[in-house]
Amino acid sequence: MSSTARALAVTVADVIEVTPLVKRFEFVSTDGAPLPPFSGGAHVVVELPDGDHLRRNPYSLMSSPRDLSRYAISVRRDDGGRGGSRYLHEQVVPGMAMTISAPVNLFALDLRARKHLMIAGGIGITPFIAQIHQLSGGGAPFELHYKARSAPLAAYMDDLAARHPGAVHACCSDRGEDLDLDTLLTTQPLGTHLYVCGPERLIAGVTARAAALGWPARHVHVEHFAAPPPGLPFAVRLAASNLSITVRGEQSLLEAIEEAGVDAPYLCRGGACGQCETAVVACDGTLHHHDHWLTDAQRETGDRIMPCVSRFTGRLLTLDR
């Protein structure tokens, strides 16, 4: 019993350079019908057929949930990554046919909130843009704090500030600005929910302060942007399928399993949702866990792995897949 979101056939309607590092990609459905509804914070998984290598990368939807005529994502170019963002920046042009998944939301607004307090770091701004669209139709107030290296690199900051005066606060490190986290977290009205999306360091810092200052864990929501890290190639035995495969350096274990024609479930492809959890039958080497799903105790036992982000070094990894 596992789930994978269904596929949607889309056409690239527009590619827009937002900053020197960020491009926005807009998709319309190829058959002209409205795209499926979604909620703010949802992501889609975009198929990136780069030669022989099929990558599937998750990106947050940033368009308005009330506009189903097109979806938009924004992608920051990461030249040190596995190549998915580079492929999007260099190869994807208007008119191209692409396949994306139906939206899945692992970072939903808690609609009971009396107020939504949002903290974004860099490209982590994208899910908040869709959530702000959703809240603009009525609902609890929001307050967004957006951290970036510099104003020119802060995608959509000017636009957000102009449309939501008083609710959007920029924080650019090149101007010497820093977030006064303790003041922010100790002056919120009762019933506020806190949302954080951005680099790992930001998420860890904010959640640690929130916990230390007495925020209930259920009022703190995070979206990890865990991209699968590249690494060394390794050998895997898929015991249930009776197949031996090699995971290439720029490929994730999940992608290598899919390339071998073995059906494997997934939803987030970022180590957060738990859908791809796979039992380890034998491990002649070391597991490198990069997920946010397994507990420390489970990692210690070493009897399971999240193949969307985690890797292995050693002689052979045998999986129940």
Binding site: S2, S3, A5, P36, A102, V104, L267, Q275
Partner: peptide, 14 residues
């Protein structure tokens, strides 16, 4: 426990 894991992962349209 098994049911909640499945139910919270149900995708739209499925």
């Amino acid at each position: 426990q098994r049911a909640i894991k499945f139910l919270t992962s149900i995708p739209q349209g499925q």
